[in-house]
Amino acid sequence: MDRAMTTHDYRTIDVAVAGGDLRVAVWDPTDARTDDALLIHGVTSSHLAWPFVVGRLPGVRAIAPDLRGRGASSALAGPAGMAAHADDLAAALDALGIARVTVVGHSMGAFVAVVFAHRHPERVSRLVLVDGGLPLDVPQGVDTDALVAGILGPTAARLSMRFANTGEYLDFWRAHPAFAEAWTPELERYLAYDLVDDGAGSLRPATSYRTTAEDTVDMNAGAALPEALGALAHPTRLMTVPRGLQDEPPGLYAPAHLERMLAAHPSVVHQRVDGLNHYTVVMSDAGADVVAAVVREELDRAALLA
C-alpha cells in the first residue's frame, strides 16, 4: 500500500493560472496539521513523484502541482520557463490560502524553487533542493537539441515514443537502470499517470518535448536562475547523490564542479546522500527516508522562527 494513503487524505484541485488550469495535488494529514510543505517535481515528472516522501511527513499538509506542460497540467497554453512555473506556484498557494511555506524541489523543481523564492520571497520560509538548483556543468553555446540530449538522454527521447498500452510503457521503464533495485507499486502508479491518449490509438508521455526543451534551455542558459541565485536570501539545504538519471556516476554534480558551485554560493548547506541515484533519492524508501528527515528538520526550524 502507498504509505501516504495511511498518513494523508489525497485530493486534487484545479487552479486558474495564465493559459488555463494548473492541477495541484494536496495531501491533507490524517493527524492534526502542524505544517505545510510545497513539493516541486522534475522536468518530465509529475506530482506523483512525491508519495514516498509525503508518507514520511505525518502532520504535514503537502501541496504538489503538476507543473505546466506535465501530467494533468499538460494542456496549459503559453510558454514555460522558471519564472512562469514560479508564478504558477504563487497562484496555487493563493488558492489554498497559504501565506508562507517551506519549499522542496527535486531536479528541475529545485531550480524552480530558487526562482520562486526570488520572485515571491515573502511566500518562502526555507528551501530544500534535492539534486538540483545550482547550475549544472553544461557546455555553452550548444543548440537546444544537443543540450536536452546531453542532460536528459533517453528521458527526453521517450517523449516522442508511442506505446500500445500501459503495460508496454511499464516494460519500457523496467529496463531502466535507475530502477533496477527500486521497482514498487508506487512507482508503477507514478509511471502510468504519465500517459495520455495521442489521438491515434496509442499512448504517449504527457510532457511534450517542446516544453522540456524550453525549460531545459531556460534552466541552463536563461537569466532567471543566475539572478535568483545572486540574490539568494532564504536558508537553503542542498542534497546531492553520486549517480545520475541512468544510475551512472558521478551524477548531475561531479565533485569538482559541485565544489566550485558551493564556493560560489557559500550560504547553501550541502549534504551528500550516498547509495542513491537521481530518481531513487525521492522515489524509493531509502531516498525518501533521508529527504523527509531533512524536510522535517527545516519545517521545525521554520516553526521556531515563526
Rank of each mutant, 00 (worst) to 15 (best):
M1V: 13
D2A: 13
R3K: 11
A4R: 03
T7E: 07
H8G: 05
Y10L: 14
V15Q: 08
V15L: 11
A16V: 15
G20V: 09
V24K: 03
D28N: 15
D31G: 13
A37M: 02
H41R: 06
V43E: 04
S46Y: 09
A49F: 07
W50D: 02
F52A: 12
V54Y: 04
L57H: 02
P58K: 09
P58S: 12
V60Q: 04
D66T: 07
A72P: 07
A75E: 15
L76V: 15
A77V: 10
P79S: 12
A86D: 05
A92H: 05
A95Y: 11
A99V: 10
T102K: 01
S107G: 12
M108I: 05
F111G: 06
A113Y: 02
E122H: 12
R123S: 04
S125A: 14
L129K: 00
V130N: 00
D131R: 04
D137K: 12
V138H: 04
Q140F: 10
G141N: 12
L147E: 00
A156C: 08
A157T: 11
A164M: 11
R174W: 07
R174T: 08
A175M: 11
W183L: 02
W183H: 02
W183N: 02
L187G: 00
A192L: 09
G199S: 10
A200E: 15
G201Q: 09
L203I: 05
R204M: 08
R204Q: 10
P205L: 14
A206F: 04
A206T: 04
S208L: 05
Y209C: 09
E214P: 07
T216I: 11
N220T: 15
G230A: 13
A233P: 05
T236G: 07
M239D: 04
V241P: 02
P242I: 10
P242E: 12
P249Q: 14
Y253G: 03
L262R: 04
S267Y: 06
V268R: 03
H270L: 05
V273F: 06
G275I: 06
Y279L: 14
T280V: 03
V281R: 00
V282E: 00
M283T: 09
D285I: 05
A292I: 07
L299F: 02
